[in-house]
Structure formats: structure tokens, C-alpha cells
């Protein structure tokens, strides 16, 4: 497949063929990641700026490792200690970066639409590593890819997304990706953590976790941001966890071998019981491993658009 896209801003702008191609390419990088020497020279001479204007450990490390394993040079930029904290506008910051001619900018930003905003001003590729509540396409793709390695076929698979849907870019991107692949999605959360227009989403809505888990093939738990309580959306964490913490008992109603996922970092005992997070059907650490492969695939597709597929294995 000839990769024509310049930026990865959200899931919506990908076709199902492109998603399948990303999965296919990721599979090949999974193989490279299982070698003893995990480095290939296909992006040698390319430079990738990791611009994380919001704190992040795993996404940033994952991108950094992906870039280095492809022999690209990666440069980190954080909001604190950068000119953004001196009041420079985002546009001025990225125009400055542009002048240094990077090949791609990976952006994490607290404001929805920030990745699209900078992409409009830049000639290089922009990969959205999470913008506000809007989108986290690489997380959704790694979630999808993790399931793909177990399922192959997504048609009519039932997936529950549990937790703070309203303020979650992961939920938005997961719903888009998994619906596109043919899954039937449910969500479960207190009403205060559901988007106002949830009735117009292609999802089934539950307020009881017992009912929500019935027949599920996979359950994606979302991290509860502790500031939701301060904002008055929840009485307290204890009450939240008594209603919405995924426990072993809930899985009795789920499909056999239901997969447990979480984008991390986990609040053990709040959105998922500690035992479940570590159980045999938990894919949580597998997601992290897949994440590196998916991000290698994405960097490769967006940065080496002209190279043919054979080169991955040849090199």
C-alpha cells in the first residue's frame, strides 16, 4: 500500500484499509522487536521531535524507543523549560521548530485540536500523541493491534469501555477504531462521566457494571483522573470503586477468556482490582509491547512513505 497521509491526527481520517495496513506493518515490527538486536536502519538520517507539552511517561518512551529502533534521531521538548512556559504561543513555538526542518513532530498537548492546529502550520508530518479530550489515535491503534493479535476477526466482538468516557481521548479514539473494525461497543460509567451527547454515539450505555459485563469479549478500563472528584463529578473514590471497579466476579457474566485492557497508568483498586490487572487474560503489559511496534509502524509509514515494504525485512 502506498501511504499518502501526511499527518495522523485522529482515527476518523483513516480508512479501514489503512488501519489493516498499520496492523500488518506492526506485525512485522513485532518480529523485529523479538530479535536480540532490535535496531534497523530504515529511518537513518530522519529526525523526530517529541514535543510533549503535557506530562507523559509511557507514550513518550514508546515513541522514543520506536524512533531509535528505526535509527531516526529523536529530540525531546517538554512544555516546562521550553519557551511555551515563557508565554510563547504554540504557533510561534512550532514555526521555530519547523525552521530546524524535522521530519516529524510527535505532539502531546492538553488542548483538544492542538495537533490539527500545528499540522495546519507545518510541512513535516505531525503524529498526535494525545490532544485534550479529543483523540489519541496511536493508543487506539495499539489497543486494536493488541486485540488483533488474539482475534484476527473483529466482527461482532463485544467490547466494553469502562470509566471516565467524557474526559477521555482514549475512549473517543477506541470507539471510532473498534466500531470501524466491526465491534459492538458498550460503555459503562456514572452519568457525570458520560459525554452530554452520548445517546448519539454508536454505543450501548450502562450504569450497572454487572449488566454491562454480560457477554463481553474484551473490557477496556480507563484511568480515573483523581481531579474528577474535586470537580464535583463524584462523591469520593471509595463510592466510585464500589460501583465501577472491575472485579473478578464481574467476569463470570463475560464471554470465556474475556480480555482485560487498560491504557495505563493503573489506579489499582479504583478502576480495576489489583488481581485482575495481573491475571492471565490481562493484556495490559502486552499493550505496552504492541505500542512500540505500532509506533514503529507509524513512524515508518509516515516518514518513509516512498520506501517499499520489502525493505523492512531486508534491512
Amino acid at each position: 500500500m502506498n501511504w499518502t497521509q501526511k499527518d495522523l491526527l485522529d482515527i476518523e481520517s483513516l480508512s479501514i484499509e489503512e488501519v489493516r495496513h498499520i496492523f500488518y506493518t506492526s506485525t512485522r515490527f513485532m518480529e523485529i522487536n523479538s530479535r536480540s538486536i532490535k535496531k534497523v536502519p530504515i529511518l537513518k538520517g530522519k529526525s523526530v521531535v517529541l514535543f510533549f507539552a503535557e506530562p507523559s511517561t509511557r507514550t513518550k518512551t514508546s515513541f522514543d524507543m520506536a524512533a531509535k529502533r528505526l535509527s531516526a534521531d529523536s529530540f525531546s521538548l517538554a512544555a516546562t523549560g521550553s519557551s511555551l512556559s515563557k508565554g510563547e504561543s504554540l504557533k510561534d513555538t512550532v514555526m521555530t521548530l519547523q525552521a530546524m526542518k524535522p521530519d516529524a513532530i510527535v505532539l502531546r498537548h492538553s488542548l483538544s485540536g492542538a495537533a490539527g492546529f500545528i499540522a495546519g502550520h507545518l510541512d513535516c508530518s505531525v503524529l498526535n500523541a494525545g490532544d485534550g479530550w479529543h483523540a489519541h489515535p496511536t493508543q487506539a491503534l495499539l489497543d486494536g493491534f493488541t486485540l488483533f493479535q488474539h482475534w484476527q476477526d473483529f466482527q461482532d466482538k463485544k467490547v466494553l469501555i469502562l470509566g471516565d468516557i467524557a474526559h477521555s481521548r482514549v475512549a473517543r479514539s477506541d470507539v471510532q477504531l473498534l466500531s470501524m473494525l466491526g465491534c459492538r461497543i458498550s460503555v459503562c460509567a456514572p452519568r457525570t462521566l458520560l459525554p452530554a451527547g452520548i445517546s448519539q454515539w454508536p454505543v450501548e450505555v450502562h450504569s450497572s457494571l454487572e449488566h454491562a459485563c454480560r457477554g463481553m469479549d474484551a473490557i477496556i478500563c480507563l484511568r480515573l483522573q483523581l481531579e474528577r472528584q474535586e470537580a464535583g463529578l463524584l462523591p469520593d473514590l471509595r463510592e466510585y470503586s464500589s460501583r465501577f471497579c472491575l472485579q473478578a466476579g464481574h467476569l463470570e457474566q463475560a464471554a470465556p477468556r474475556a480480555r482485560i485492557m487498560h491504557p495505563g497508568p493503573i489506579n489499582r483498586g479504583i478502576e480495576i482490582s489489583s488481581g485482575l490487572a495481573d491475571c492471565a487474560d490481562s493484556l495490559i503489559l502486552e499493550q505496552v509491547g504492541s505500542g512500540v511496534a505500532v509506533r514503529m509502524a507509524l513512524l515508518y509509514l509516515y516518514l518513509a512513505r516512498s520506501k517499499s515494504e520489502q525493505e523492512i525485512s531486508e534491512e
Partner: peptide, 15 residues
């Protein structure tokens, strides 16, 4: 405005 479009864009809405 709070509703379908604010959900879609991930922006905080005003009902």
C-alpha cells in the same frame, strides 16, 4: 455549545 459537536471535538461544552 454542549452536545454532539462538543463531544466529537472533545471540547468542554456550555449547555
Amino acid at each position: 455549545n454542549e452536545g454532539r459537536m462538543s463531544d466529537y471535538l472533545g471540547l468542554k461544552g456550555i449547555p
